[in-house]
Structure formats: C-alpha cells, structure tokens
Design a protein around this nucleic acid. Structure first.
Lengths: 130, 130, 130, 130
DNA sequence: GTGGTCTAGACCACA
DNA sequence: GTGGTCTAGACCACT
C-alpha cells in the first residue's frame, strides 16, 4: 500500500492518513486481516509525529474498520456484518449532494460522478485478484 | 422553509444553518430570487445571536449561492452557469463513498442511496410546481 | 456608446455604470465635450431607478471626469491638467498587484497583462479616429 | 514585518490588515512557512479586538495565502501552483487602469507606475536575501 | 497557548 | 429596516 501525505494541505495529516487507508480498504488493496504498518514505523517514514499516526489509527478503530492489539498491531477487520447506512454518514452525503445540485449541476451528472467513483474502487479490486 | 438547529450538536450552528439552506436550494424550496429571513430576524427565531446567522449567510455568499444587499437583504442567486465539479468537492465525496464501501456496504446499494437522495431533491421541486 | 449592466451581479449597479463610462472615456469612445444620456433616459433604457443613474453620474462628477449642468446635462470634461497619480488610486493598484504577486504570478506576466489592457484602450481610440 | 492601521479610515480595519499582509507576502518579507503573530497578540499590539484580526486572517485563508492551525497558528502557504489570472482580478485592474487613462494620464506613464510598483516588491525580496 | 465558536450590544451606511 | 463593522468577554478543542 502506498500512502502520500501533503504537509502543506488544509486538511489535517491524521485525516489524510485515515482517508487514504479507508480508500485502500474500499479498493481491496487492504483486505480483512491485513496488517497496517506500526505507528512508529509509519511516522518515521513520513517524518511526522508518532501521535499523529496514532490519532488516524484511533479514528479507524472507532469506526470499526481496524482492530488495535498491543501484540499484533493494527489489523483490518472483516467487513461489518450490519451493512446499514449510518445516519450521520447519510447526512454528510446528503449535504454534499445538495451542494452540487444547488450549484446547478444536473442530478444525473452528480450521480454519474458517484457511479464512476464507486466503479474505480471495484476496478482496483479486480486488478488485485485476477 | 423550515429550518431546525441542534444547539447541543458538535457541528457549529452556522454550519447547520448553511447546510440546511443549501438543501433548501437544492430541493427548490428556495429558488433564484427568493429572499432569506433577515439575519436578526432568523437569529431571534432560533434564540441565537445574529452574528452566528451572519456567518452562515457569509459562507453562502462566498460560495455564490446567495447575494447580500443592504437594501434587499439576502437573496438566492441564479444557479451558476459553470456546472463544473470542483476538485475538492469530488475528493470529499470520494472519501465518503470509500467509507461506505469499506464498511462492507455493496457499491450498488451506496449508489442507490445517492440516487434516492438526488431524487428526493427533485421530488420536492415537483411538489412546489405541480 | 453601448453600456451593459448585470442586475444579478455582486457589484452595485451604479458602480457598473460608473466603471463602464470610465472605460468608455479611457477608450476615447467618449471624448471631452461628449454628452452622456439624460439620467432619466438611461434609467428607462435599463429599467432601473433614476437615482441609481444619478449616483453613478455623481461619482464621475466628484472625480472630475464629467460636469453636470441643469441645462446641458452631463458632459465629459477635458482631461485633467494635473496628471498626477492620486495616492489612493496608487494604493489600490499596489494592493491589487501585490495580490497577484503573492499568489505566485510572475511580476513580468502581471505587467504584461496591464500592458495589454492599456493597449486595448489605445486600440479603441485609433479605431474611432482613423 | 511592520504593519500600520488607520482607525479613522473608511476602509475596514480587517481589510487594511489583509492588504498589508498581502503586500508583505508579495515583497517577500513574509515567505512560505513564515508565522504571523497570534490573533490576540496582534490585536493587543494595535489596541483592537481580536475578532477583527481574526476576520483579516480568515480572508487570507479563504484566498489560500495562509493556513490556520490551532497548534501552529497562522502560517504563510507556498505560492499557489496555478498562476492563472482570476477574471474578477483582471476586471478590477482594468477598471483602475481605465480610471487613470480617463484622467488624462498617458498610458505609458501608468504602465511605468505599475512597473515600478512591481519592481519595489522584487527590491524588498532582494534586500531580504542578499 | 493557539485558533474556533458563540453571545451581547453598540454604531454606521445605505436607501 | 437592512447588512457591515467593531468591541468585550466567555468557553471550548487541541497540543
């Protein structure tokens, strides 16, 4: 897995890490049982603070995407059995979609954008397991 | 237009206001030329400070969704002529979609959720202009 | 002289009028001694308030670009004898130029942009007096 | 960096602050990575309210010139990679240039004024890195 | 110790 | 009567 962070970005580093790991899981690059790099290793690689990586991992743990053990490190969990759409997630998506529509973008174009994004996740998955 | 704010929420009040107004515009409840309540009026209705409403309106103005005049108050602008998808918007959506997929929700169900949200905007529009 | 105003614009109508008349003078489309349309005529043409046109004309008068008489209407004055650069004008230009440079635009490109703008004024003048 | 504000001016204090900081960036007095004074510190120095400084900083953040962090304060960002001339910026410059020409100032003198302003930015930069 | 948010209340400019 | 600006002072989140 290749991660890249932008130290000059507006978005916090721990958020960038979290987002990219989430994407990697969505793409199937990281599958259930995969191990994430040790926090100190990852921090050293990027020259960032160890606590920053910790915070990113903790966010993922809170969401149930990874499991943190003292001995086995950070491990990607199996997909949640309850595939319900969390309400706050739906609220965020709804706000974003509304923003696009309010700016005058046709709804079907917005949907097409979403569709192609979702397809791109699947494409990565097929590449990995040919 | 019906707005509701949650004073106990961790998302800022001005953000809640902005989001709901954006949704109202997307739904067509607020159309181009519609007037928003005066800042102090809206503030009084919710029992909040007028500066908080001011900040929400200012965010909408920055995004080009409303126009602020000393004489005519806050007025919804016509939809932007350039229906381009901003890159940072796309990045936010991509992260959110990845989050759903990572949680094990099938991509086609995610897409269906988006589709129904977009439809709900259109539905409101059709209600208004039967 | 052809004027066009954008009722939906962020910038006040009287300002748009003033700016376009200033440009027309700079381009030589309006020369010293030229008469501007009567305020009520111009207001009727655009379907705007008569006071709005009045305000634009008054701004031009304050700057010494036109002269207002009850009988002869608004007349473009001869170019000011003192071609000094007003300090507040210089301050505005300086701030704008600084903004471009601060955004990373090379100074010579900024200067080239200014140069081509100034040339465009002269071009119009030559067209008018072949 | 030396800032000066005029409390009696009709241009808002936060605007004065913003403009002077923009100039400082253009001059190279503030380079990418430089820290600006803390909002409350700067406010205390000028005997103004910290909210006023906050608004100036927020404008700079919106423009992408600085980054605001809770921990590291206000930091000047690297120059934007896209050196495009925004259309509204061009419109403002065009209006100002037209104003000068309309007042009878020869275009080449206007251009020389712009050129010397741009040079003065570079001059400051050279002073800083001799 | 930083910025972020919210409140309360004042005066101004515009029209 | 509208938004715009400024002040004064509070508490919170993050580090």
């Amino acid at each position: 897995m290749i991660l890249s962070i932008d130290l000059a970005s507006e978005v916090p580093i721990y958020q960038q890490l979290r987002d990219q790991i989430v994407e990697a899981i969505a793409e199937g690059v990281l599958t259930a049982g995969s191990s994430l790099p040790a926090t100190r290793t990852l921090a050293a690689d990027f020259g960032i603070n160890f606590h920053t990586v910790n915070k990113a991992y903790d966010l993922l743990r809170q969401q149930g995407l990874i499991r943190l053990n003292r001995k086995s490190g950070a491990v990607v969990t199996a997909a949640v059995t309850d595939p319900m759409v969390p309400s706050d997630w739906a609220a965020k998506v709804r706000t974003l979609l509304a923003e696009a529509v309010a700016r005058g973008i046709p709804p079907d174009e917005v949907l097409r954008t979403c569709s192609s994004m979702l397809d791109s996740f699947g494409a990565k998955q097929r590449e990995d397991t040919p």
